[in-house]
């Protein structure tokens, strides 16, 4: 097997809010890597975090294996954020000056915002913060694109498509197709492929 990872282990975090499909995204990516002979460790938290809380999945992709499901602090190579504030939350612990970020710009309000106790920062401000905490940050509105497809939940697959365009990981459409076939019901395969392609087109590498 030829190791085409940008670095080994490749440490990636998918961050979002409960209900955004973090787990499916991490499993799809993990399966894609294993399919090509890599070793993957994924750490994620579910349970109470599903009820509107912050969620994240840690992916450790390597040709060797044996990595912790909790990434050491400051060791992320890439943060894929399905929600902008979650990008910052994750960067603050796992980021470093060399980290790259792919970020959906559509915020998910907290209960605190709904009831008026919290204020969601301006989009411009959030982007500035993410840029200052990363070496390279790319932004897009996957929620909007996913809504055009009929359901905001496709934002996670689009984010994976976007990740594929960075070239950091071997993520061909062909491999994605083989993996997604086993993950979703047959009638949902086509729309997931579509979402992946849209995501891929969102980032100019």
């Amino acid at each position: 097997m030829e190791n085409t990872l940008r670095c080994d282990p490749y440490n990636l975090i998918i961050a979002g809010v409960g209900g955004q499909g973090n787990v499916l995204a991490s499993r799809v990516l993990g399966d894609m890597m294993i399919h090509q002979g890599y070793t993957v460790t994924i750490g994620e938290t579910f349970g109470a975090s599903q009820r509107g809380g912050s969620v994240m999945s840690h992916l450790r992709i390597s040709a060797r294996g044996g990595f912790s499901p909790q990434m050491p602090k400051g060791k992320a190579n890439m943060v894929v954020a399905l929600e902008p504030m979650e990008a910052i939350r994750v960067l603050a612990v796992y980021g470093n000056p060399k980290v790259k970020v792919l970020c959906n710009t559509r915020p998910i309000q907290s209960v605190g915002v709904i009831c008026g106790e919290q204020i969601y920062p301006e989009k411009k401000q959030i982007i500035k913060w993410i840029e200052s905490l990363s070496a390279d940050a790319k932004f897009f509105d996957t929620t909007k694109a996913a809504l055009n497809l009929g359901n905001p939940v496709f934002g996670n697959i689009m984010a994976m498509g976007a990740l594929s365009s960075t070239g950091d990981l071997p993520m061909s459409l062909n491999v994605f197709e083989q993996v997604i076939l086993k993950k979703v019901p047959a009638h949902k395969v086509e729309i997931n492929l579509e979402a992946y392609k849209i995501g891929k087109g969102m980032v100019i590498a």
């Binding site: 509107g52 809380g53 939350r89 603050a92 907290s110 209960v111 920062p121």
Partner: peptide
């Protein structure tokens, strides 16, 4: 400055 905790609900 701007990141709040997401209270479970």
């Amino acid at each position: 400055a701007g990141v709040f905790n997401r209270e479970l609900t």
